[in-house]
């Protein structure tokens, strides 16, 4: 039985359709990322699952039970907010214990559960601190501990890492993966960061303009984007019209095709399917990014370290496998 199910979930603000008939099944123990640009409706979707926003239409089911009319306080979900939303006048221990106090968990049991939760997020010894005395990363951990200590049916994360600096964000990604694995909990995370989504999610649901465009494991969504939006949003890609490909590659019936930059190979002039010239070369350490002038227009190409390479202005040949051309729906 799926743990969280969204059925035709829709939210309208006046004339504006913010979330449009979203259907999604999140399996027990799965980590699903709702990925999309800001304003695509992903946060509104999450807030409908949490119960903060009432759906205009549609149903939210937790373990098969329709909770659309259940207030957030009785949904039993753990929510982590972008701003952390810690209670500033309560200590770390009081923050984490809040949900247990609401559930009338006996004092002794609550104390040991708070200690376990803080140990899980590696904040043991910080019990008596106040939120203002903690760094952003530590506040984030308190928010996680507070959401997990109530043993929620599912964990909802709203852009949990976007307020952290880059280095801390990478650390917290690993931490989140570990915590998710250890707790074995169903999780839905909203993010606009495709790297974060690919690093954390079992499956990614990509939203655009209130609609889910594609759902699948990160590799599948990356390698086989269904639409031009997905191809462009999830990493860098080259979008090619079917008409341009005629005579170069055996194209199918799709009107547009995606060709990932790392699938292109720079070869000696005269070799490969295309002739081109390097217009820009950007060294990025583990790889090098090229912008190539070709008869198909400007193409991006990424070459791994140690693959030789070409300098700016140099004429080159460009090779790719026709199988790496991915058909797009629109």
């Amino acid at each position: 039985m799926p743990e969280v199910a969204l059925e035709n979930l829709t939210r309208r603000y006046g004339a504006q359709l913010v979330v449009d008939r979203v259907n999604l099944l999140v399996a027990e123990g799965e980590f699903l990322c709702l990925l999309g640009p800001s304003g695509c409706g992903k946060t509104t979707t999450l807030q409908m699952v949490a119960g903060f926003v009432e759906p205009t239409l549609g149903t939210v089911r937790l373990a098969g039970r329709d909770v659309s009319q259940v207030p957030p306080a009785r949904r039993g979900l753990g929510v982590v907010f972008q701003s952390y939303a810690l209670f500033p006048h309560m200590s770390v221990a009081e923050n984490v214990a809040f949900g247990l106090a609401m559930r009338r968990v006996p004092r002794a049991e609550a104390a040991s559960r708070v200690a376990d939760a803080l140990a899980m997020v590696r904040l043991s010894g910080m019990e008596q601190r106040y939120p203002r005395q903690l760094s952003g990363g530590q506040q984030q951990r308190v928010a996680l501990a507070r959401a997990l200590v109530i043993r929620p049916q599912a964990l909802l994360l709203d852009e949990p890492l976007s307020n952290l600096d880059a280095k801390l964000r990478d650390e917290m990604q690993l931490e989140l993966r570990r915590i998710h694995r250890d707790a074995g909990i169903t999780a839905i995370m909203v993010t606009h960061d495709q790297g974060e989504a690919m690093a954390l999610a079992d499956r990614i649901a990509i939203m655009n303009a209130g609609v889910i465009e594609q759902v699948g494991p990160p590799e599948a969504v990356y390698d086989q984007p269904a639409t031009a939006f997905v191809a462009g949003f999830l990493g860098r890609t080259n979008l090619l019209d079917a008409a341009m490909l005629r005579g170069i590659a055996p194209a199918g019936t799709a009107p547009r095709w995606s060709l990932r930059p790392e699938r292109l190979r720079i070869t000696a002039p005269g070799e490969g399917q295309l002739a081109g010239r390097v217009s820009t070369r950007v060294f990025q350490g583990s790889q090098t990014l090229y912008e190539l002038d070709t008869p198909l227009g400007a193409l991006f190409c990424v070459q791994g370290a140690g693959s030789g390479g070409a300098s700016e202005g140099q004429a080159v040949g460009i090779a790719f496998d026709a199988a790496d051309l991915r058909p797009l729906a629109a």
Partner: peptide, 9 residues
Amino acid sequence: AEHAAASLG
């Protein structure tokens, strides 16, 4: 914070 408190019961 109010939403957080509501979600915690």
